[in-house]
Simulated scan of single mutants.
Amino acid sequence: MRMSARLSAALTLLTALAALTACGSGGSDTAVDSGSGAAPTVTVRVPDPGNSGVLAVGKKDGSLDKALAEVNAKVAWTGSAGPFAPAAQALNADQLDIATGSITSGITSLSQNPGFKFFTATAPDPVGEGILVKKDSGIDSVADLVGKKVAVNKGGTGEYLLLKALAEEDIPAEKVERVYLRADQTAAVFNAGQVDAWAVWATYSVAELGLGEARFLVDGQTIGSDNYSLTAVRTDFAEQHPDVVAALYGYLHDASVKEKQDPAAYLNVTTDAGPQALSGEAKRIQIEFTGKGSPVEPITDTDITRFEAVARFYAEQQVTTEQIDIADHLIDVTTLS
């Protein structure tokens, strides 16, 4: 595998970096049981996973702590899950040890003196990401977006999906107006008709599709998306605790395989009511999307080639000022112990 073999070289999700400050910055990775002579316990700071997914189940039933106990580690749930950009800042500021995000957001974050590396890869979502339009919009092809406003999150999945869709149809990017919005603030704008379309991923598309008033103009598979989901680890943490990183990978892989087999068991983990819960058509859609997804895997040479294609595309589209060397920011988890 073409990857950096040394961990000594400089490697779900937060709504905002400020959400972490109450938990303190920096701090020790280990805690010693005073007076017992026990070996230090490693604490892994992970964003609170909310109400769905493998980490939500791991938090509820204690299975993640059980897996980490085998390498003398435990979890501290810190902040809350959200976009990768603020999570990357928290990793760089030593306020977080683990976070999940897309390769697209990862590339833009890697352009800013990163203090993290990626150690897992999940293949691009074939059905849950894409460009949403209203059913009665009259927009029936990517070409129909010319002269229209499309909401995207800057430098992340949304901007990538829009640019990729336009490039596939040889449509110059400047012919479509990009409206930069945070994904968690876009639904109201989209539903009010203030934008004509929304380039988005499953975290937000499921709710819109569940309402029955929106549809995908194109999805990720149609446009050949290389938008992987990745797990990042703070570089210093990985250097100091490779066995913990390996244990985290093992847990994420095994749990994600089970999630694909029984998606419903990983929804509404802590509550089936309120804004975090899914019900009705949205729940059915999420179960379908999850079942069509892929499990967490180690990063392979094939993955790296596709990562590099995204980095090259971002440079060509001037999302980044230069092509980011992805291989310098990856860990081969299969070599860890």
Rank of each mutant, 00 (worst) to 15 (best):
K258E: 15
H253I: 02
A188T: 09
Q95I: 00
N153P: 09
Y314T: 01
L145C: 04
A232N: 05
G130I: 02
H329D: 03
I304A: 03
L132I: 11
V46A: 10
V71W: 06
S28L: 14
Y204S: 13
Q261D: 07
A22Q: 10
L68R: 01
G62T: 04
L55F: 05
L267G: 00
D140Y: 08
F118N: 06
P263Y: 00
Q95V: 01
V245A: 05
G212K: 11
G138I: 08
F119E: 13
V233W: 10
G193V: 01
A39W: 11
V244E: 05
D33F: 11
A38V: 02
A19Y: 10
S229Y: 06
K164P: 11
T271L: 04
G50Y: 01
L7T: 03
G101F: 03
C23M: 08
V296K: 03
L278Q: 08
L248N: 07
T43I: 15
D65L: 00
L13S: 14
S256Y: 01
L163Y: 13
A183Q: 13
E308I: 07
D236V: 15
R182S: 07
G37C: 05
L209M: 14
A246T: 05
V257G: 10
A282F: 12
I287A: 13
E213R: 14
K66L: 12
N72V: 09
A183L: 09
W77E: 13
Q261A: 15
A123W: 07
V206C: 02
A67E: 03
A309C: 08
S80Q: 14
A273D: 14
A81L: 11
D262A: 13
F190G: 12
T78C: 01
R2C: 06
